[in-house]
């Protein structure tokens, strides 16, 4: 692992709530994104992917506490940064694109006005300058007749256009890191491909890194050079995509890849059991109860990530 990563998350542990209802959804996440690369963060729902993104943006749900670990952007620690400073980073250094872009756009503000506001806030442009930038951005994202469409509202945009507008907004200040949280779920296959191509094309041209959050391993492997597999608040396996997905070493990754490969007509292959609710810090392998290869020692300590065949694997058996 290189010393200077754009984003470096180490041992991130987050708990939410107190007392009987408290949970520890992030058990110690390690993840890094190098400059100008695309990294996929994959895992089942509830594995902590989106929460990890929220922690990077300093937007954890209320009642959350970062118990341990660090999040560094360009070497500067983000955990514990006051909200005022975080606000300066959000949108300017790190931007996020949520699932369902239509809902991310305000129904009562014009598309152009929303994009212009972001530019105005971060780059101190005038109203006119920022409006021009918004039109440029929309044009750059492939919105035809951007000058006129900038005055439209989200209900006048088609799904694909809303997607482009949301991307324009996220990339308006040329952030170093774009987090795309399930950007294509709910879209049909052709549109999915178009959106992903647009996202990668734009982030590449800006020299930005992409952290693609998805549950779709196929999407991850077609888009990203690096893949990080998360399960129950921990990273199970991470490394070059062709290693992690092509030749998984962690039993969890193998199961995930197998489940993905067998989707289609006929019987679907699923991993038996469900993602556990993490009431507390789990001092053993979280996957042990569902793992076909689990041994006694898996339940005795947390597996430490180690280098195996060109990737990092957090498994004693691998």
């Amino acid at each position: 692992m290189s010393v200077e990563a754009l984003l470096e998350i180490q041992g991130l542990r987050v708990s939410i709530g107190t007392g009987a209802t408290s949970v520890v959804p992030l058990q110690g996440v390690d993840l890094s994104v190098q400059y100008g690369t695309r990294v996929a963060l994959v895992g089942e729902s509830g594995s902590g992917k989106s929460l990890t993104a929220a922690a990077v943006l300093g937007m954890l749900p209320s009642g959350s506490v970062v118990e341990a670990g660090s999040v560094r952007l360009d070497g500067a620690e983000l955990i514990g940064l006051p909200d005022r400073r975080m606000r300066d980073i959000r949108g300017r250094r790190v931007a996020i694109m949520f699932q369902n872009p239509r809902a991310s756009l305000n129904p009562v503000l014009t598309i152009g006005g929303q994009i212009a506001e972001v530019v105005r806030v971060h780059e101190g442009l005038t109203r006119r300058e920022s409006q021009e930038r918004a039109i440029e951005l929309l044009d750059q994202m492939g919105i035809a007749d951007a000058k006129r469409r900038a005055h439209d509202y989200v209900h006048q945009y088609s799904g694909g256009m809303a997607q482009r507008a949301a991307l324009a907004m996220a990339l308006s200040c040329r952030p170093s890191l774009l987090i795309a949280d399930e950007p294509t779920s709910g879209l049909d296959a052709t549109l999915q491909q178009q959106v992903l191509e647009l996202v990668t094309e734009q982030t590449d041209s800006m020299g930005s890194s992409l952290l693609l959050i998805t549950h779709d391993i196929g999407l991850a492997s077609s888009t990203c050079s690096e893949t990080v597999v998360m399960y129950a608040g921990r990273v199970m396996e991470s490394g070059p995509t062709e290693r992690v997905v092509g030749d998984p070493r962690n039993p969890y990754t193998s199961e995930l890849v197998r489940a993905y490969r067998n989707v289609g007509p006929g019987r679907m292959n699923s991993i038996p059991g469900t993602v556990p609710v993490l009431r507390d810090f789990v001092a053993r392998c979280s996957f042990a109860d569902r793992c076909p290869l689990a041994e006694d020692r898996c339940r005795e300590s947390v597996p430490v990530p180690r280098a195996v065949d060109g990737r990092e694997v957090a498994c004693l058996i691998a």
Binding site: M59, R87, G91, A95, I96, N100, S104, V118, A170
Partner: peptide, 15 residues
């Protein structure tokens, strides 16, 4: 989500 998105873009609380 549009407010979450506005927050994630670093807009000031007042706006």
């Amino acid at each position: 989500q549009y407010v979450r998105s506005a927050k994630a873009l670093g807009l000031p609380h007042r706006s």
